[in-house]
Nucleic acid binder design. Structure first.
Length: 495
DNA sequence: AAAAAAC
């Protein structure tokens, strides 16, 4: 952000040589001046080079790869209805379903005046409409990894002609354990392709991923990734754990916040807080991984439409979500992972607007606070918050289990799944399935080791990027990190 | 410690 302030860009989108149909869509989106990352990335992508990008959403990241991708695919766009003429040419992978949906909406709008077709596939929703769309043919596919592999196995998606791959929020995908899925997908793609990797940090793991799957990548970086936007005012309120709900209500009322995202560390905590806020007259709803995809999308849409004051979320909403003019975020809990703090507060103060990041800190969260201050390299302003009339609810801990208007009891079977008739009633269905049946396929058993030359090039690229962000733990040479990547081998290894 | 993601 500070980059823009120091050297205001006088560039326009016209300078990139994008097709008129693309520029028209850009104009209709209301954009006139490229952001720093767009200015740097668009020429690199147009030139067909691999790229590692350090940038967060809200910096214009999505357009920085979608616009040049559309341009590059344009000559192949066909008006023929034959699916064979519409193989997947560009694949964009994201860690969460909401992010996939959002990226897809952007791609759709940028490509609307072209003959290119795009589609999005992710889990939690019916596969059939997705399969039908794939059958009709799409050039640009946006997906979460699991559902994409599902489509591959069902033979509804063919990745054999992908020319451009984008790994969005790659660090997040690794955090979430997507590496095996990513490997399977990557091994299905043609070797001759362009690969773009976006990540908040260039950790050792990210560098190894890049060294293995990218070819001589160019590094693009805007705004150091662990820095927080200067237009976001950060405040920490010391408050007793039991007063947190009242504190949230007080902050919303005192500051007259029209809309706010409140982050919790647990799914149960988020549901509970949403209910408590509702009882205190705040229109609130929860969004987290135990709600059905339908509920998640409805919650997000209603929030975007302004029908909901407080969106109470887990870290499913911490990254990437772009909600215009969000005046504030509140951390009900401080995140265990300091980096998540940066991502959470990045939901406010977007596109140059100002925003407030208000964090509640109970006495047992001091360590998390210290970790955050260490990461952002500055102390945070801490104030004691007195809650004048603590709002206590007798049923706070265990709200009555009441049938909701949709006929389901809250908190049970939220995925909308139906119990199998005749299944044992031992209650095992309420537990997540940890051991998914491992499909017998061999396409993901190829080795995951970068060549020495590739490692060198990634190291050089990362080093040449000014002040490439490094986690202190990843200062060691890449080679030292290569051994312990912990990949599942075909037959169980000693690890 | 917790979250996310395929039936």
């Amino acid at each position: 952000m500070s980059d823009t302030a120091v050297t205001p860009s006088t560039a326009t989108f016209d300078q990139f040589g994008l097709a008129p149909d693309i520029l028209k869509a850009v104009k209709e989106s209301g954009y006139t001046i490229p952001t720093p990352i767009q200015e740097q990335a668009i020429p690199v992508v147009l030139a067909g080079r691999d790229m590692m990008g350090a940038a967060q959403t809200g910096t214009g990241k999505t357009a920085s790869f979608s616009l040049p991708i559309i341009q590059r695919l344009l000559p192949q766009a066909s008006t023929s209805a034959s699916p064979a003429r519409h193989p997947v040419r560009a694949l964009i992978l994201t860690p969460t379903r909401e992010l996939a949906d959002q990226v897809a909406a952007n791609v759709q709008s940028y490509a609307k005046h072209t003959a290119l077709r795009s589609a999005v596939v992710f889990g939690g929703v019916d596969m059939n409409p997705q399969s039908e769309q794939l059958r009709r043919g799409v050039e640009i596919l946006i997906a979460t990894p699991g559902r994409l592999l599902d489509h591959v196995q069902q033979k509804t998606a063919n990745l054999g002609q992908v020319q451009i791959l984008v790994l969005d929020e790659a660090d997040r995908m690794l955090d979430m354990g997507f590496l095996p899925d990513l490997q399977r997908i990557l091994n299905l793609l043609p070797k001759e392709r362009q690969t773009l990797l976006f990540s908040a940090t260039f950790s050792g793991e990210i560098k190894k991923l890049a060294a293995t799957y990218l070819r001589d990548p160019q590094t693009i970086e805007v705004a150091r990734s662990n820095s927080t936007a200067t237009n976001v005012t950060q405040m920490v309120y010391e408050v007793a754990e039991g007063d947190k709900t009242a504190a949230v209500v007080k902050l919303i009322r005192d500051r007259g916040l029209k809309q706010v995202i409140v982050f919790c560390n647990s799914k149960i905590g988020a549901s509970r807080l949403a209910r408590s806020l509702e009882r205190d007259g705040v229109v609130a709803t929860a969004i987290h991984g135990d709600r059905t995809q339908n509920e998640r999308m409805q919650a997000l849409d209603a929030f975007k439409r302004g029908e909901i004051e407080a969106l109470v979320a887990t870290d499913v909403a911490a990254r990437g979500l772009d909600i215009a003019e969000l005046p504030a975020v509140i951390n009900f809990d401080l995140p265990f992972n300091a980096e998540d703090y940066v991502h959470r507060i990045g939901r406010t103060g977007r596109a140059g607007a100002s925003g407030d990041a208000l964090s509640l800190c109970s006495p047992n969260e001091r360590k998390q606070l210290a970790d955050i201050e260490k990461l952002i390299k500055r102390p945070l302003d801490v104030q004691h918050l007195t809650v004048d009339a603590p709002v206590r609810h007798h049923h706070e801990e265990r709200p009555p289990r009441r049938e909701r208007v949709d006929g389901r009891a809250e908190g049970r079977d939220e995925r909308g799944g139906r119990r199998r008739p005749g299944a044992s009633s031992s209650g095992s269905f309420d537990r997540p399935h940890h051991h998914r049946a491992q499909p017998v396929d061999d396409f993901f058993l190829k080795p995951y080791e970068p060549s020495a030359a590739s490692v060198r090039k990634v190291e050089e690229a990362a080093a040449s990027s000014a002040a490439a962000p490094q986690k202190s733990s990843s200062k060691q040479p890449l080679a030292a990190l290569l051994g312990g990547f912990g990949m599942p081998r075909k037959s169980s290894s000693s690890s």
